[in-house]
Amino acid sequence: MSAATLAPAGAERTKTRLLELVKRHGPQTAQDLAQRLDVSVPAARRHLSDLQEQGLLESRTERPGGRGRPQHVFALTDRGEAAFPKTYSSLCVDVLRHIEGLFGGDALLKVLDARNAEIAERLRGDLPAELPLGERVQALVGRLNEYGFDATAEQDAEGGWVFTQRNCPNLTVARQYAQLCSAEITLYTDLLGVPVARDTRIACGQACCRYRVG
């Protein structure tokens, strides 16, 4: 097997190690990461650039310890954080199970409705009613991607809008509580101001969640 054949796998291992270093030590400069990995700074920068394009890292300027000269550092994005194992989903399932057991299904729906209202309040400014529907859909997809949904939008043959989520960050919860998916439909309908219907659902074993708008 040639070195060229091994290179991609080696590059992916290096990227994984870069993410692990940033997770363990916090925001790092390219020079610090190159030193920790024992690679050249240009090589580290190439990997960092790839990770930025994948939405796993972001670059920003910080003063070490709040003092000294500003430095260009790389930090995990929300999507990068999500790449590491979490127990949040199992905790969420436990909490919802206890709410339903103690107070009934209506209480569970009230909790999800309150969550919807909070999310809608955060996103509504990005989707003003005066924008054309297509722009509102695109804006919603952009925000969904910030939350790790790997979403895309397109127009169908009739000129209507369709958007797709190829990842479900809440899959563990959604598989046990279909109410979460129902609440999601309500949220999208509220934000876009038109009916939204789901054609496919990841939680049911399909490849993506696909939504028809209007």
Results as ranks from 00 to 15, higher is better:
160 G>L: 09
149 F>T: 00
173 V>M: 11
143 R>T: 06
155 Q>G: 06
153 A>S: 15
165 Q>S: 12
159 G>W: 07
150 D>V: 03
167 N>V: 07
151 A>R: 02
149 F>P: 00
168 C>E: 05
175 R>P: 04
172 T>I: 09
147 Y>Q: 11
150 D>E: 12
150 D>C: 06
154 E>I: 01
146 E>G: 06
159 G>C: 05
152 T>K: 13
144 L>A: 01
146 E>C: 03
157 A>Y: 09
154 E>W: 11
156 D>Y: 12
157 A>E: 13
152 T>S: 15
146 E>Q: 11
152 T>P: 02
144 L>F: 08
168 C>A: 14
151 A>V: 03
162 V>M: 04
162 V>S: 05
159 G>P: 01
160 G>R: 15
164 T>S: 10
168 C>H: 10
159 G>A: 07
149 F>M: 01
155 Q>F: 09
167 N>F: 13
167 N>K: 15
156 D>L: 10
165 Q>W: 06
163 F>L: 07
162 V>P: 02
170 N>Y: 15
142 G>K: 07
170 N>G: 12
152 T>W: 07
145 N>S: 02
147 Y>S: 05
164 T>E: 04
167 N>G: 10
150 D>F: 07
156 D>C: 13
175 R>S: 10
148 G>M: 01
143 R>V: 10
172 T>C: 04
142 G>D: 05
145 N>H: 01
161 W>P: 01
157 A>Q: 14
144 L>K: 01
157 A>M: 05
170 N>T: 13
144 L>R: 03
158 E>A: 15
166 R>T: 08
163 F>A: 06
167 N>S: 15
160 G>C: 05
143 R>F: 08
166 R>Q: 10
171 L>W: 06
157 A>H: 13
173 V>H: 11
145 N>F: 00
170 N>R: 14
142 G>R: 11
147 Y>W: 13
149 F>W: 14
158 E>Y: 08
148 G>R: 03
158 E>C: 05
162 V>T: 11
142 G>Y: 08
176 Q>S: 14
143 R>N: 14
144 L>M: 08
145 N>L: 00
145 N>D: 03
159 G>D: 04
153 A>P: 06
168 C>R: 10
172 T>K: 12
160 G>W: 03
173 V>N: 11
176 Q>H: 15
175 R>Y: 10
173 V>G: 13
143 R>L: 11
175 R>H: 10
154 E>N: 08
149 F>D: 00
150 D>A: 13
141 V>P: 00
151 A>D: 00
153 A>Q: 08
166 R>M: 04
141 V>R: 00
176 Q>F: 12
156 D>P: 11
170 N>A: 14
144 L>I: 00
154 E>F: 14
147 Y>E: 09
158 E>I: 00
166 R>P: 02
162 V>C: 03
163 F>D: 01
154 E>D: 08
160 G>E: 09
141 V>L: 02
163 F>H: 06
164 T>D: 03
150 D>G: 01
156 D>R: 09
146 E>A: 10
166 R>Y: 10
154 E>R: 15
171 L>M: 10
152 T>E: 12
153 A>R: 08
174 A>W: 04
159 G>R: 03
149 F>I: 00
153 A>L: 05
144 L>Y: 02
175 R>G: 11
168 C>V: 09
172 T>G: 13
157 A>V: 11
157 A>K: 12
168 C>K: 09
174 A>Y: 07
164 T>R: 14
150 D>W: 02
176 Q>M: 14
174 A>M: 08
161 W>Q: 03
